[in-house]
Amino acid sequence: MMKLVRNVNWDWFVQFRPFYKRVLNFGNEMMKGHCKILVFQTYNGLVAIGSLVFFVVAMSCAFLYLFPSVPPVVNSYPVSNSSSSSTDKCDVFEGRWIQDESYPLYNASECPFAEIGFNCFANGRKDRGYAKWRWKPKNCDIPRFDVRAVLEKLRGKRIVFVGDSLSRTQWESLICLLMTGVEDKKSVYEVNGKKITKQIRFLSVHFSSFDLRIDFYRSVFLVQPASVPIRSPKRVKSTLRVDKLDDISQEWIDSDILIFNSGHWWTPSKLFDM
């Protein structure tokens, strides 16, 4: 108890000073107004007052022991409102689309790997405004796409896209973007000589001058299909082995960058009826 009292911040007791004075004044008035009181009654009054004072002190010590002055658990950090060109200092997913007349970064009609069904210009669309938008994060700027710098960064690498038609169009767009920085367009070719269509499950484009491969594997669920269980409802046409990756997954292993897309297929309307 004495150790606890020594560690107490005595500034807290200043708040109780009026209360102490009131208690002592009460004792004095009681002694003055009752001079003829018996000695043992006076002694009992002093004991009562002393007990009350001791109770207040004990409660104060207990309060300071249970609720000591400690620094806040959550530290506050200054928030900078200035823009930064470094994407690792802000959330690049929080922002908005803004118009940029320098866009698009490539012409799909000049890219041999842009599937005809997704080439809006070649299919006769007149307005071009939809292609002149770029993403602007709230608190920073994304560096403009530098095709030569990207090609050098990816030299000798293998990039693999896995998913559905959305993955395929992303794969096509990346190839078309990178082709704008290649002088000899014939040095970029599909490895198996295939034409890009949605029926083909595997496509691979090689940038020979940079020893760069960009592959696409169609795998909408990423896992293996399975047979229909016995006595299952007639509406069940197929099942999935969620514990087994697609049988072509072994071909993704040696990739340097692996990009998945499968979310659209894992929905109630795609997998089952409620």
Results as ranks from 00 to 15, higher is better:
Lys237Asp: 06
Asp273Thr: 10
Asp247Ala: 02
Lys21His: 04
Ile98Asn: 03
Ser262Val: 15
Val191Lys: 06
Arg231His: 15
Lys89Asp: 00
Ala122Phe: 04
Val147Asp: 08
Ile196Ala: 03
Cys61Ile: 13
Ile159Gln: 04
Phe16Ile: 14
Gln99Asn: 14
Leu212Cys: 09
Asp11Thr: 09
Val242Pro: 01
Cys140Trp: 00
Glu110Val: 07
Phe118Arg: 14
Met1His: 11
Ser83Asn: 12
Phe26Ile: 00
Leu66Arg: 02
Trp135Val: 06
Lys194Tyr: 15
Leu258Ala: 03
Pro72Gln: 14
Asp247Asn: 00
Lys185Asp: 02
Thr42Met: 04
Ile230Cys: 09
Leu222Ile: 01
Phe67Ile: 01
Pro137Asp: 04
Ser165Val: 13
Glu251Trp: 08
Val228Phe: 09
Ser83Lys: 07
Val70Trp: 10
Gly181Val: 10
Asp256Pro: 07
Ser187Val: 07
Arg134Met: 13
Arg128Tyr: 14
His264Pro: 11
Ser232Ile: 09
Phe19Gln: 03
Lys186Leu: 12
Pro268Glu: 09
Ile214Gly: 00
Cys140Ser: 00
Ile200Lys: 07
Asp243Tyr: 13
Lys157Glu: 08
Val70Arg: 14
Asn261Trp: 05
Ile159Arg: 07
Phe221Leu: 08
Ile253Cys: 02
Leu258Val: 06
Val242Gly: 02
Lys195Ala: 11
Cys111Arg: 08
Val228Ile: 08
Ile159Asn: 05
Asp141Arg: 12
Ser85Pro: 09
Asp254Ser: 08
Arg158Met: 01
Lys132Tyr: 02
Gly117Ala: 08
Trp133Val: 13
Val79Arg: 12
Phe26Met: 10
Leu212Arg: 12
Val92Leu: 08
Ser60Gln: 13
Arg144Lys: 11
Leu105Gly: 14
Ser269Thr: 04
Met1Pro: 12
Val223Ile: 03
Gly117Pro: 01
Val5Arg: 15
Arg168Phe: 05
Glu101Tyr: 05
Val79Asn: 06
Trp266Met: 11
Cys61Ser: 14
Tyr130Met: 09
Asp164Trp: 04
Ala58Thr: 03
Ser86Lys: 15
Val191Ser: 07
Pro71Asp: 10
Ser102Asp: 04
Ile253Phe: 05
Ile230Thr: 09
Phe145Lys: 05
Ser269Asn: 01
Arg6Gln: 07
Leu245Ala: 06
Asn119Ile: 10
Lys132Ala: 00
Ser84Glu: 02
Trp135Lys: 06
Phe67Thr: 10
